[in-house]
Structure formats: C-alpha cells, structure tokens
C-alpha cells in the first residue's frame, strides 16, 4: 500500500476537472493529513470524480463531521478506498456564513454512509446539507431550536442541584438556591 498524497489527488482533479475550485489546505499537525478544500458549488462533481476515478476509487466515506469556525462552518469528509486500500483523503467544504447561508451540498447521493452523519452535523451544527434526502434532526428532538455543538451555544440554566459547584456554576447554583431542593 503506497500512501496516497493529497497533492496527487489534486493534480488528477485539476487535469480532469479544470474548472473545479479546489485548493490544498495545509495541516500543521505532525499527522500530515492535509485537506482538499472544495468550493461548495463544485463539491458534488468533485465527489463523483473522487469516487469513480480508476486511480483514486475513494469509494468509502468513512467519517463526516462538522467544525465550527468563527466565520463559517465546515463539513469534513474522511475518504478511504476499499478497492485500493488507501486513504485518508480529507475533503472539506465550507458554508458561506454561520447564519442564513449555512449550507453545503449533501454528498449522501454519492456516498450513502454520509446519510446519518450529515443529519448529525445538521442537528448539532446547523449545517444545511442541500439535496439530502431526509434532513431531520438526528439526536436532539424535533422541537429543539439551537445547535449545541456551536461554540456560541448557551446551555440552558436548569441546574437542579449542585453539591460540588465550580466556576460559573456557583452563580447558577446560588440563583437556583433561591428555590432550594426539597429535603427528604
């Protein structure tokens, strides 16, 4: 198994799809897993190519996760090839912003494995995956409104009882102690 380098993938991509907007994102970590950042409008096309190109055959989208950055949200796909036994190739798409334009195209039609994971990223980050066949919340309940894994998420103040308080919980507990827990 020879490792598949993101640069090789990028070269093949540029050769086959010259108009696709893809760039290499450097990863400073010792892991050396550099990512391919694809413009969201070209994502489906690029994904199809990665999956079907005979040299790459990235047929296995193992992991999909969302990441929250101050300016945008990111959907990260970790692709492997079962036929060629190489990977991971990290594919990223970014939303326009964190509000109204927080959408990227869904790759579930390319890799079915993205189905639940994109729903999870939608649920916890609020990334709308356009074209997902069944985009509903996965883990939280339907009526829930916020996106818990975003950095600016504010947890509800519903501390029932806090015997070992810490940090800001001290204040919350003090507020809660106005209505103390009924003692047995």
């Amino acid at each position: 198994m020879s490792p598949l380098l993101p640069q090789t993938v990028l070269d093949r991509l540029h050769a086959a799809l010259p108009q696709a907007r893809v760039e290499l994102v450097n990863n400073p970590s010792p892991s050396g897993q550099h990512a391919l950042l694809v413009h969201r409008e070209d994502a489906v096309q690029v994904a199809e190519f990665l999956k079907n190109d005979p040299e790459l055959l990235l047929d296995y989208a193992s992991d999909v996760s969302g990441v929250d950055y101050p300016e945008y949200l990111e959907a990260v796909y970790h692709l492997f090839s079962i036929a060629k036994k190489h990977g991971p190739i990290v594919l990223k798409t970014r939303t326009g912003d964190r509000g109204a334009d927080a959408s990227v195209p869904s790759l579930t039609r390319v890799w079915k494995s993205a189905d639940f994971q994109e729903r999870e990223a939608f649920d916890l980050f609020g990334i709308r995956f356009e074209g997902h066949p069944d985009l509903r919340r996965l883990l939280m309940w339907e009526e829930f409104e916020d996106f818990p894994l975003r950095k600016d998420y504010v947890a509800p103040n519903d501390c029932e009882y806090e015997p070992t308080p810490h940090g800001d919980i001290v204040q919350k507990a003090a507020a809660a102690s106005a209505s103390p827990v009924p003692q047995a």
């Binding site: 009882y161 015997p163 070992t164 827990v181 003692q183 047995a184």
Partner: peptide, 9 residues
Amino acid sequence: GYDRFAPLV
C-alpha cells in the same frame, strides 16, 4: 442512601 442527593455527597 435514602435520597438522591445529600447522602451521596
């Protein structure tokens, strides 16, 4: 303990 809170601290 007899309740959920105090006896378990």
